[in-house]
Design a protein around this nucleic acid. Structure first.
Lengths: 343, 343
DNA sequence: GTTAGCACTCTACTTCATAGAGTGCTAACA
DNA sequence: TGTTAGCACTCTATGAAGTAGAGTGCTAAC
């Protein structure tokens, strides 16, 4: 498709632009990257590359910058693979061992580490309670009118809530209801727990149908509620300020106000459920407003089933190799952690 | 201290500057605020006010802007009190009823609402587990080697963690240990629960001292751990971008990177434990780096004891009256919520 | 004590000129 | 035929110079 020298030139331009954020001229390429040809030759190559759509010119007499197509080719064909260094691995493991006690803390820290490492905004769609299997539920006494309900799922996600109970409900009754629910529901994915099942359990808790109803409401909430289930963790928004493409406050504001809309974040993170690391460059993004950004994402799985996604969002001028390595690493790390919390 | 007309002029200047962020000239005052005197007269007054230190001039032939001393006088003597409107009250209550199930969600939402309403960064130092009283602890089975430990305090703060248990510990043993601990520790403030108490309980759990030890470790963690206890909630950082004093990205970055240091946030929020709303203007701030900002804060109490603080941080040019009203409102709101979760 | 008038000052904005970086084209060269 | 040197051309970024406008401070009159 592209002869060897064109590839070298394209790679040099993209590498340089990624690190400097400045248009690159033929002289610079000839000087910095020893291709053994003169600037004039490079100019010809660059002209060709532009005609082919891999490069763009901000204005007539400036250097060239990569186009979206250029980045795409770079990611698919040019870029060398990269790995997270062993020392970083150790560091990250230690960090997690120290800081993380609950699974939601793991999500939080993952986002933090990822945005630190990649110098960009990062996102994580947490294991959807919807995709988790119910393990058990327990009522803990709180006062005369309320109990704490704890739901434990197989991914270790826990939900606890205060819940009003009908007056005069005895502890034994509560225990019996919990027992019945656990018996029937254990091992089911939360979305499967629907009213149909209620019928089966109803008999066992006949004296207190309201209680069962409330507990089911809690489960439903955990399945699709705003504050639970599919929570999106967002981190490193301030990293934007370090990127030269956001030197203008209004640009920052525009992007950040988009990121505040949770719906958009879901859209970004839901666009795929294939496996592996997926790169979406510029206009390839379906979401309005991030079309001069790139998104690199990967889903993580548990027992072969996709349970969440993590992603890095940054300007199209992004360190693709490093970022992809980081994402892949954190994906595996996340899968390990989930396993650890599962059993 | 200041005659009536000087006060009027000062108030007019500050009001105007707060809303426009531009230096104000004598003509503007005379035109917009009907004081019935000519610009020349206003000029004389302004000259006096500057000599007294209430006003400043950015440069020789510009209008005046308020000095820190000016704002201080405004806050103490000039500014009218303001109240949160009834319709806002209703709105906020509904919002909380809908969204908030757990107490930490209440903290999160408080910060969110506060920064929305005040258009500024807001902070909340959450009820310190340290200041909470232990209510009870419960072990929930998880698998052969681990249990879920739930600690419930009287403010409704719940901690839950996975904890390794010595092999072969029976459910009954766990229950007995929990029972013993609850018996001895219930009603105590968490910091009071120290090794001295361990001695008393030891006898009852003699066969499994390690277990007691682990549970105590969890309590200690809850008391002073990073992820728990004195958590600081931070919100509305993007509001900064709307303030003209942060039109420059480097300024935003500077402040945001400070706000990332959790220690600084503690410093800001710990500077006081008096009651009522406290305003700290510019240089009055002891923390380096926020000395061209103002902080408005109030602590909230439960049973007469300070358990947390909420604050708004913004440029010295701030809508003091409105912000103070908002903080006071949210303070009371928070106290109600805490009460609700307590019993 | 208040006000009109006026000279003065400082900034922000516009215009203009210039240096510099980079291109594209042509012609010469291997 | 591919490569290279040379050169004219283009466009931006930078800085200097000039100007309009807003605002002050002072003086003198009311």
């Amino acid at each position: 498709m592209l002869d060897e020298r064109k590839r070298q030139v394209l790679q040099a331009i993209i590498d340089d632009y990624i690190s400097t954020a400045e248009p690159i001229g033929s002289r610079t390429i000839a000087r910095k990257y020893g291709l053994g040809v003169s600037p004039a030759t490079i100019r010809n190559e660059m002209s060709d590359l532009e005609a082919l759509g891999f490069l763009e010119q901000p204005h007539a007499s400036a250097g060239r910058i990569p186009s979206a197509k250029g980045y795409r080719f770079y990611v698919d064909c040019l870029m060398g693979p990269q790995q997270v260094s062993d020392s970083d691995t150790v560091l990250i493991n230690q960090w997690f061992d120290q800081k993380v006690r609950r699974i939601d803390e793991a999500f939080q820290e993952t986002v933090r580490v990822l945005s630190r490492v990649t110098q960009n905004v990062s996102l994580l769609l947490a294991p959807q309670a919807a995709a988790c299997k119910f393990k058990y539920l327990q009522f803990l006494p709180f006062d005369e009118t309320r109990v704490v309900v704890v739901i434990v799922t197989e991914t270790g996600v826990m939900e606890n809530r205060l819940m009003k109970i009908p007056e005069g409900t005895s502890t034994e009754e509560l225990q019996r209801i919990a027992g019945a629910m656990n018996h029937w529901l254990s091992g089911l994915a939360l979305p499967e727990i629907q009213t149909s099942l209620l019928e089966q359990i109803k008999d066992e808790v006949l004296p207190r149908p309201e209680l069962l109803e409330s507990a089911m409401a809690l489960i439903r909430e955990a399945t699709s509620g705003a504050s639970s289930g599919e929570k999106v963790y967002l981190g490193g928004t301030t990293q934007l300020l370090n990127q030269p493409e956001f030197r203008d406050v209004s640009k920052v504001r525009q992007l950040l106000s988009m990121l505040e809309e949770e719906q958009l974040l879901y859209d970004i993170l839901h666009t795929q459920d294939g496996s592996g690391v997926i790169v979406t460059i510029g206009q390839e993004n379906k979401c309005q407003g991030i079309q001069d950004c790139s998104v690199i994402q990967a889903s993580f799985r548990l027992d072969g089933q996709t349970v969440g996604t993590l992603a890095v969002l940054g300007p199209t001028r992004m360190e693709y190799a490093r970022t992809m390595a980081a994402i892949e690493f954190m994906q595996k790390h996340m899968e390990q952690i989930l396993k650890k919390y599962q059993r």
